[in-house]
């Protein structure tokens, strides 16, 4: 009678195979791009702003000292307006205080596909606002404060861009013509030597430069 061959003698040798890492690798290959997508590749910076003043917009009179400039940019749905302390307004032609209306102008925007492109459309005229503020700064070079007042429904991104227009002096101004907003948008700040080390190498060299400031101190104003 035939017998079943002994299993004991034919038992395969027990051998531990290496751990199959391929599924784990696949998981990691999916996880890493997912985390990279979650991570934001943009720089978050901050704009310092002073607390708002609640007031009627009128100023105190009878001051012996030099009157402050009280430079105020009003943002409305139709554009910008620049105001100064009455005593200082006479130093400039009336065109300085003419409203800067929104204009149909070439500017950078995003198209339907999300790509940045040049387009014609109604936009706030930040270039003209910058030109006028630069002219004011040239006359009152010691002044560093600007009041920003906006109509209550003006969105924050318009206020942020307005502050940006007043912050630093740019190379290439004044910005005029059809492409003024594009030229303004791409203009580089004028650099001046720092008074102390500002690039972090612990010594003051020719490399220590910073943008030339115009009106770095921003105050929010709410007119009642």
């Amino acid at each position: 009678m035939a017998r079943k061959p002994s299993e004991a003698s034919h038992r395969k040798s027990e051998k531990f195979d290496d751990l199959n890492l391929t599924p784990i690798m696949s998981m990691l290959v999916i996880l890493i791009p997912m985390l990279l997508a979650m991570f934001n590749f943009f720089e978050v910076k901050v704009q310092a702003v002073a607390a708002p003043k609640l007031g009627s917009g009128t100023t105190k009179s009878g001051d012996d000292k030099e009157k402050p400039l009280n430079l105020t940019v009003l943002i409305s749905k139709t554009g910008f307006a620049i105001k100064l302390q009455d005593e200082h307004q006479s130093a400039f032609p009336p065109t300085m205080f003419a409203p800067i209306s929104k204009d149909v102008i070439l500017h950078e925007g995003t198209d339907a596909s999300g790509a940045t492109t040049e387009m014609q459309g109604e936009e706030y005229d930040y270039a003209t606002l910058y030109d006028r503020l630069e002219e004011l700064k040239a006359k009152f070079d010691k002044e560093s404060t600007i009041n920003i007042a906006a109509e209550m429904d003006i969105p924050w991104h318009v206020v942020a861009r307005t502050i940006d227009a007043a912050r630093v002096k740019l190379v290439g101004g004044p910005f005029q013509g059809e492409r003024r907003l594009l030229d303004y948008s791409h203009a580089k700040p004028e650099m001046v030597p720092c008074k102390q080390d500002c690039n972090g190498d612990a010594e003051l060299t020719a490399d220590d430069v910073e943008p030339k400031e115009m009106f770095p101190r921003v105050v929010f104003v709410v007119a009642e």
Binding site: V46, W156, V222
Partner: peptide, 24 residues
């Protein structure tokens, strides 16, 4: 809108916060 920003900033001032930064 600027109205909400003004409300937040005014309330922060009342809480004793005197230095404001806006993230951009």
């Amino acid at each position: 809108p600027y109205r909400i920003i003004a409300e937040v900033v005014h309330t922060a001032g009342n809480a004793g916060i005197d230095q404001l930064r806006f993230a951009i």
